[in-house]
């Protein structure tokens, strides 16, 4: 590849738009994170006080823990199931494939607010379908959205083991929100994987088949490596987006969940900004979250992207 300064011209339109609508607001928020500001005309510079207060607050670290639970719960299942469905739906000559593709895509297009409302009906403790199914199979109903116990703790309790706080896992309420996240992400991952699968030249498969490779070998040696740019994209994007989960939490547990166990970072941040009108504090939280996400992403780029197969 030759050096082509014309590259700058290609990124200029996006760069300009981002500068006006994102970098300027970003810089603005960064400045605000060193002040006390309630959206009025006066702003007081207070240095690092906001950052100090946040780092000293146990509520913040709890919200970090819950956020990690959410990300770690949503990511692997969304990717794995999404890939599985995409592999099943790749053959466009299969009968009804268009119909199935549409169905698996529907959760993605449903308004997130409506989806979250639907989920809260399904997991309603007294009257929801989830408990209805459990009870009709002879099980005990679960108080989904008011249960603050960590799911790993609930599991180990049966053997009389008490896990340390950090290992107790997401509360039952947060688990329901994780399920909603997976439900919405599957469709997204499926569609992206389908686009990725269709970019793989048929010739590779034909060559492999002539060589007599088994289907599982084809999957491991051809499909997965050639899909790795797609997987990498989904991994990064899901990590970034689920780290910032907010909407479903707000709709399903507007009070922050049982004993605040669904109060993820952005929920706390939103509360500080738009309920308490502490924009300085909220901005500082945003930048702490930002640095965590940036670190995770850089880590993924450094260590995971090595394994990605590009042409």
């Amino acid at each position: 590849m030759r050096r082509r300064p014309v590259g700058y011209l290609f990124i200029l339109p996006a760069g300009l738009l981002l500068a006006v609508f994102l970098y300027f607001p970003l810089a603005y928020s960064f400045m605000i994170s060193f002040t006390r500001w309630d959206l009025s005309a006066t702003r007081t510079f207070i240095g690092l006080d906001n950052y100090r207060a946040i780092i000293a607050s146990s509520e913040f670290w709890n919200s970090v823990l819950y956020t990690f639970y959410y990300v770690l719960g949503v990511l692997p299942f969304s990717l794995a199931i999404g890939l599985g469905v995409a592999l099943l739906l790749r053959d466009s000559n299969m009968k009804g494939v268009g119909f199935f593709r549409m169905i698996y895509f529907m959760p993605v297009v449903t308004s997130p607010i409506a989806a979250a409302m639907g989920f809260s009906w399904i997991f309603n403790t007294q009257l929801g379908y989830a408990n209805y199914v459990i009870e009709s199979m002879g099980g005990e109903p679960v108080n989904w959205l008011t249960n603050y116990n960590g799911i790993f703790q609930l599991l180990f309790e049966r053997f009389g083991i008490q896990l340390p706080h950090i290992l107790q896992g997401p509360s039952v309420a947060l688990t329901v929100i994780i399920l909603l996240g997976i439900w919405q992400n599957i469709g997204y991952a499926t569609v992206v994987y389908l686009a990725g699968l269709q970019g793989i030249p048929q010739a590779f498969y034909e060559a492999a088949r002539i060589d007599g490779a088994s289907p599982s070998k084809i999957l491991r040696k051809i499909t997965l490596p050639l899909l790795s740019p797609t997987t990498f994209f989904l991994l990064i994007v899901f990590a970034i987006l689920s780290f910032q989960v907010f909407g479903p939490v707000q709709v399903m547990t507007p009070q922050g969940g049982p004993l605040q166990t669904t109060s993820v970072i952005v929920f706390r941040l939103y509360q500080q900004a738009f309920s308490y009108y502490r924009f300085g504090y909220a901005s500082a939280m945003a930048f702490l979250a930002f640095s965590m996400i940036l670190l995770i992403t850089l880590f993924q780029m450094k260590f995971v992207e090595r394994k990605v197969y590009y042409e």
């Binding site: 981002l18 994102l22 970098y23 607001p25 970003l26 928020s29 994007v237 970034i240 987006l241 780290f243 910032q244 907010f246 970072i265 952005v266 941040l269 939103y270 900004a273 738009f274 909220a282 901005s283 939280m285 945003a286 930048f287 979250a289 930002f290 996400i293 940036l294 992403t297």
Partner: peptide
């Protein structure tokens, strides 16, 4: 990086 900052704050 523009994706990594919670949009609510921007």
């Amino acid at each position: 990086a523009t994706m990594m900052i919670p949009q609510q704050i921007l």
